[in-house]
């Protein structure tokens, strides 16, 4: 009974964690990503450019 109860506890805790993380992802990450899209802001620099002679960036 104790083992079953502990397993059940773990399952419940994993489900709650997933729900919380999903909420954080949708609200936190989602809204930030949405605003970034509105203001054309990028978090990763993924563009290729034929015009650029170099992709090196100075170490800050």
């Amino acid at each position: 009974f104790k083992k079953g109860f502990a397993d059940f506890g773990h399952t419940i805790s994993a489900v709650v964690n997933s729900i919380l993380l999903t909420a954080v992802y949708l609200i936190g990450v989602g809204l930030t990503a949405l605003f970034a899209k509105l203001f054309k802001r990028h978090f990763l620099n993924m563009k290729l450019s034929e015009k650029r002679k170099s992709y090196w960036v100075k170490h800050e």
Binding site: S18, L21, T22, Y25, V29, G30, T32, A33, A36, H42, F43, L44, M46
Partner: peptide
């Protein structure tokens, strides 16, 4: 990475 690739990054975020 998660922000740039939302919502594809859902699984790895979790």
């Amino acid at each position: 990475q998660h922000l740039e690739t939302f919502p594809k990054s859902y699984k790895t975020f979790l």
